[in-house]
Design a protein around this nucleic acid. Structure first.
Lengths: 191, 191
DNA sequence: AGATTAATTCAACGCTTGTAGAACTCAACA
DNA sequence: TGTTGAGTTCTACAAGCGTTGAATTAATCT
């Protein structure tokens, strides 16, 4: 079974490995995800993973290449003025998390933030630069940065409970309900 | 150095091990914390850890024995009526997290929730039973449980960012400020 | 057709980990 | 004082990990 040497036919194994890696990192976090497990998920020898992506940390970095452009994000959030920013950011947040394709790298990043320095840095950079830096400059009032950071903390808290830990009272609720409930509170941080 | 056999003098090594374990689990999470590292922290042989606490997961379970009685907590939060519940719960939350002694097991639990099934269960049980079950019954309005869960998610989000990840915009702010800012939003979930 | 390069697997090394059991040393009590 | 038992360390095993270099097969280029 599975002869050695190059496989016949076309090949996009690299993408298969990356997908398997995202799934594994998202499901188990950085530490518990193993290169051997990822290789098995891609139906490939472990050495091939290393051949394409180098070290495990390199592979992780490639796995959390986020499906979001921070600069666009800030613009979209503020597009309809400050008074709609709360609902906008909440809606975009949940839309991205509910889509399985975009959820995988986000989950990998969020879980990885607890395991590896790099994961924490990416999360800091992403939310720090994207949200705080850009959005905070556009909302009124003093010490906008703290208030935006608190809004972000609410969003992340819900992501942790709903998507990582499967907290029942939050996992069972339809997203629309969460958006309706949370938007006003997020908005109140922006006022 | 460190001859074999029993040490002279009185002995409360068990407590030393537990403290070292809490510190290590709090700092690194379940996976990255090693029994050897914990033993070193307690200036003790790794086998002794196993002798006192059994398997690593048993030790972890002992390490997250929380310094809070859920039943008392709910009562304290609601003691002055619903209209003070938001500020009360926020204050208690931060007070507990700011005290290094009570912070260690909380951190261990929070980090462990991502690594081990048991950690997630404890967190679910703790916040689920303590907060949702008890508090939700005491606040007015429909679907109180969802709203309490959202309030909890905000608190946990801030704990993750401030105490686990060291998110600068939240770590550098004095607690009083956070309490002032967050209490109204938490309260608005209870109204 | 031959040579070169890319894709893939094989086999193995070195390390760290959790855990187990035997051995040693002191304290407590008869 | 002698014996038992608890405290403590030593040594070791078995498993899993990330990683490496060489070998094998297929595609591609001349």
């Amino acid at each position: 079974m599975a002869r050695s040497g190059r496989r016949p036919g076309a090949t996009d194994t690299r993408a298969a490995i990356l997908t398997a890696a995202q799934a594994e990192f998202a499901a188990k976090g950085y530490d518990r995800a193993t290169i051997r497990g990822i290789a098995a998920g891609a139906k490939v020898d472990p050495a091939l993973v290393h051949h394409y992506f180098g070290t495990k940390e390199d592979l992780f970095a490639a796995s959390i290449d986020l499906p979001i452009r921070p600069s666009e994000l800030a613009d979209t959030v503020m597009a309809e003025g400050v008074e709609s920013a709360g609902r906008n950011i909440t809606t975009i947040f949940f839309t991205t998390w509910e889509n399985p394709v975009t959820r995988a790298p986000l989950l990998a990043m969020l879980r990885g933030a607890f395991d590896t320095r790099h994961g924490a840095d990416v999360l800091r950079e992403f939310f720090g630069t994207a949200m705080l830096g850009r959005v905070a400059g556009l909302i009124p009032g003093p010490e906008a940065e703290i208030r935006v950071a608190l809004a972000v903390s609410h969003l992340i808290g819900v992501a942790v409970l709903r998507y990582v830990l499967g907290f029942p009272s939050l996992s069972d609720v339809p997203v629309a309900r969460l958006i309706d409930e949370m938007s006003p509170k997020i908005q109140s941080y922006f006022a």
